[in-house]
Design a protein around this nucleic acid. Structure first.
Lengths: 213, 213, 213, 213
DNA sequence: GATGAATGAGGGTTCATTCAT
DNA sequence: AATGAATGAACCCTCATTCAT
């Protein structure tokens, strides 16, 4: 009766739903286009019946949106932990750049997230609508990176004369663009490896108090 | 007989092809997912028969890719002209920021372009493949912004100690930041207007010779 | 999941598949050109949804090929049983000639089978490929008629100085003659009825030991 | 205005019509399925505009039927000449068997003719309807082979106790079956070369007065 | 609760035919 | 007379969704 909304805690989720989420994420990680993922593929890979999907969700879009929300949460919590285990802002930025370079399917997942979040399709709307709820707020990039920045400001590492909101966007967009340069370097002959030190320095220059340059 | 390749000049294009291109772009501007745009929709909106599409193109993907290429070219040439009519780098940046604020469907189109170019579907490959040809090279962001930057360097406005590639990256990244803040502001309650001066100043600080503005 | 291959026994076939087979055969019997038979027509006549066809088969060609194989098997088994219930070679030939005269759509179906088997389209290849498997071998004309001939040779009815392959050929050719005369008689004003005794005597003269009938 | 009917003499036919006929026959000779031949393909190969086809014919079926009729006439006249240049019935049969073995596209053409003439589709009806007119009568197999047989009978080579009609069918069907054995030998492992002498002898035995065996 | 057989709307594509030039 | 751009019906096939079991 009551359908999954995407706001459940991991422990509350029926195992079959988790299997579906995993299936969606695997497919994305393998490079499948969101629109190319079918319900049969999801349930087939999840090892459940096709009808079962509709016991838990109303539409395919709901399935995908909830899977995205779920993995954004997972990813957010994981990165948050790792970021707060770092010593200082520089190490944090390096960690993030390293993450982006990992040749796992994560690159695809991350790019898809960005595309969905900045898209204007109905599906994008659905996902964003699920994101703007108190339960999810702490997983928004603005929250995660916001805390990192505020921690840095408390340490005296990061400048205080710019709004946190701006600083977060400054970091997130540079990371996104770095990722974009990585995935398009083959085609557009971009030297992403050569770009990295400039990006790294660029972020530090803009955000930190002591310009090292 | 000979099919459209996407490399034609505007004047060479049959009117029905232009109508199709316009239809594609309108649909994208209205928020339709690329994969949700059907040939029937395109031809219906273009006011032509469905079969006609296949007189000019081999596949739906070709239609869409050529439409994208066409509008990227249009946009690139338009912005190039406007940029070179500006007096100085500051005015150029302001022009670009103004452009991004225009509440036309252009914002979403531009974002879709970015999504396609950073995607890894076969369609993305097709579009990128069309972009890496001598005829299109001058329309690549790297070319357009590269020339702006080199002009600025010749004027003595812009620093010469960083590779052009990176300086382009720095500009594009921040423009993306602004665009992302605009399209997500409704949902994530971001104050994009308030962000603009910071972005403006950030670009100038990083690129121009006189850092302390 | 597992698609129909055409090698199933009749009892194993889902009812909807049998309905499809029947629909195909009816359409052929009605004179429809094989290439003019559409999936919609088949499923429409079978009284099932169009999509259902693709639950059981991968392509339209598979549907048609399996239907053909199915009815060839049916026909072969039926004729084999009837042939071995006959007393002597003469009765067998008369049975076959009677069969050919039956004014059911079977005549046309049989001719279509021959056309397909001697065609050189991809569809012909597909059907032939399905026929050259151990499971189907016993249904090949060479098998059915070969056994009849060998039985006749054991009885001392049929000559032993010519290769079985040729004797089969001799019978099949004359049966074809009769069939061809029947189906073209209306148009070319052939008197097929009048031809029959000559064909009958021709077969016996060439194959049986006592030539001078 | 007045469309082509298929009953024109070669000299009366506009060159573009001849080009279309040639195109059709080439395509068949290349193994193309009749139903796979499109009007564009025909006109393209004929080097004429697509609309032109409809100046001369009402439908695609008319084009194909007339082309078939035309080449059957050509073929019939050519074979008639060659047959009457032979010395005796044996040489005539050998000529025909040689023809069938020629690895030219003729095999395909001949098989298609047989399929069309023995089919029961609307297209078959159309072709047959064109064949039963006084102008074409002399080109019917029954005429050509009938004359050969009657010549043989006058020579005293061929028996006179069977109706000519039967003898013609007996020859034609054996030839058709020989052709069928040739085209299917690869798939069904028939030894057509080995069969030939038996077929040759079989025809002579059945038709000629002096059984040589 | 779970299934998967069944559906049919809608997708991309082809092609016989028309008609303005 | 000749053309080929344009059409739209009809093709094969997919897939989100339902429902009897």
């Amino acid at each position: 009766m009551g359908k999954i909304t995407g706001m459940e805690r991991k422990e509350e989720l029926p195992p079959k739903v988790l299997q579906m989420y995993r299936a969606v994420m695997e497919l994305i990680a393998e490079g499948e286009d969101l629109s190319a993922i079918s319900v049969s593929t999801i349930t087939g890979r999840a090892g459940i019946g096709k009808g079962t999907a509709y016991d838990y969700f109303d539409t395919k879009e709901e399935i995908m949106a909830c899977a995205l929300i779920f993995y954004m949460t997972e990813f957010s919590q994981s990165i948050r932990t790792k970021l707060f285990a770092c010593e200082g802002f520089e190490e944090q930025i390096n960690l993030l750049l390293d993450k982006l370079e990992e040749k796992s399917g994560k690159q695809h997942c991350f790019l898809r997230f960005v595309h969905v979040l900045t898209g204007n399709s109905e599906f994008s709307d659905l996902v964003r609508q699920k994101m703007v709820c108190p339960a999810f707020e702490q997983n928004l990039p603005l929250s995660v990176f916001g805390e990192v920045i505020e921690q840095g400001q408390r340490n005296g590492e990061i400048r205080r004369d710019l709004p946190t909101e701006y600083l977060v966007y400054a970091v997130v967009t540079r990371l996104s663009t770095y990722l974009a340069s990585i995935v398009t370097e083959e085609c557009f002959h971009v030297d992403s490896k050569g770009l990295r030190p400039y990006i790294f320095r660029g972020i530090l220059e803009e955000l930190t108090v002591q310009k090292k340059l």
